[in-house]
């Protein structure tokens, strides 16, 4: 039986004062796209750094394809493509030189992949790093992570700074990579992002993994604030909206309704049946708001399991 792509056991990095990562038990299967979701400062990057062997866990173990992330860190990195949350400064080096420099360190990059990704994201590798916008720096990070056909991609908030079109291109690239057999571990603090591409999602809060969910479970805990405007000739179906499953905090004013929707939109859409909607705006709520809605702030994180 093949070893899990990622396996951690009681993985802990204690920075003191309750900061860090605690007792992380996690398993990611080969060829899975695993989303690692959590608010800022929840321990996502700490987990990734433990996996990459750049920080030493206080307790516990982490394995990638059966290799110890600390003891066998060099061997691990042969299999991994890594993209940090923030790209470091490469000053006056050109993009192509950064690719060659880091590609040289890992014994070579696949020029076809480099060209393919640079073209898809329209990243001019002839320009100097300091001339790159933050989005272009992210794109360079994508090239660096994918350029050697890694078996496992570890990506720390990879889409931050990318415009929506490039985000879509990135999701497409991830799906292609999964189809080619690679595993992806992707951190994010945006629920809708992981929904796009992930098979499973782990949610971390205050350094503790509070839930590992399949995609349909994630759909259930999603939370949106909706603003609906009805045509003047239409009667607002207020009672049906209030009665719809998952719809809360309904406020009506003339021909408009605002409400919060938990989970899927199906019940609400059924409630709107027959009414003429002239405008509908949906805002995804932040992870923090989702936590506050589903779980009281003083509730222990374990109760979310």
């Amino acid at each position: 039986m093949a070893a899990p792509a990622i396996r951690t056991s009681k993985l802990t990095k204690d920075y003191g004062l309750g900061h860090g990562l605690f007792d992380l038990d996690l398993e990611v299967s080969p060829q899975e796209v695993f989303g690692y979701l959590g608010p800022n400062g929840s321990g996502k990057s700490t987990t990734i750094r433990c996996l990459m062997g750049t920080i030493r866990p206080t307790l516990g173990t982490a394995y990638i394809f059966g290799l110890d992330c600390q003891r066998d860190s060099v061997a691990v990195k042969h299999k991994v493509g890594y993209m940090p949350g923030d790209m470091p400064q490469f000053g006056s080096l050109r993009g192509k030189e950064v690719v060659a420099y880091l590609g040289g360190m890992r014994g070579g990059a696949d020029p076809k992949i480099v060209r393919n990704i640079a073209e898809r994201f329209d990243l001019d590798l002839g320009r100097r790093f300091r001339e790159y916008s933050s989005g272009n720096k992210k794109k360079l990070g994508i090239v660096l992570a994918f350029m050697h056909r890694p078996e496992l991609l570890i990506l720390d908030e990879p889409t931050g700074g990318l415009d929506p079109l490039n985000q879509q291109e990135f999701y497409k690239l991830l799906r292609e990579t999964r189809d080619a057999g690679a595993t992806t571990f992707l951190s994010s603090h945006i629920l809708s992002e992981v929904e796009h591409v992930c098979d499973r999602v782990g949610i971390i809060r205050s350094g503790r993994l509070v839930k590992v969910a399949e995609l349909d479970e994630i759909h259930r805990i999603r939370l949106h604030r909706l603003e609906i405007e009805f045509a003047p000739s239409t009667e607002v179906p207020e009672a049906a909206i209030r009665a719809a499953a998952g719809v809360e905090d309904v406020v009506t004013a003339d021909q408009s309704v605002t409400c919060t929707v938990k989970g899927t939109f199906d019940p609400l859409l059924r409630a709107l049946n027959g009414a003429t909607v002239t405008n509908l705006v949906s805002h995804e709520r932040s992870l923090e708001e989702i936590f506050l809605t589903y779980y009281r702030p003083d509730e222990p994180a374990d109760s979310m399991r």
Binding site: R49, M52, G53, T54, S73, V74, A75, K77, H78, V80, Y82, P84, D86, M87, P88, Q89, F90, L102, M105, R106, G107, L144
Partner: peptide, 14 residues
């Protein structure tokens, strides 16, 4: 301090 070492160590070098 600027994260370049972290990225370098993301490659198979000790």
């Amino acid at each position: 301090t600027d994260g370049r070492l972290e990225l370098i160590l993301g490659n198979p070098v000790s």
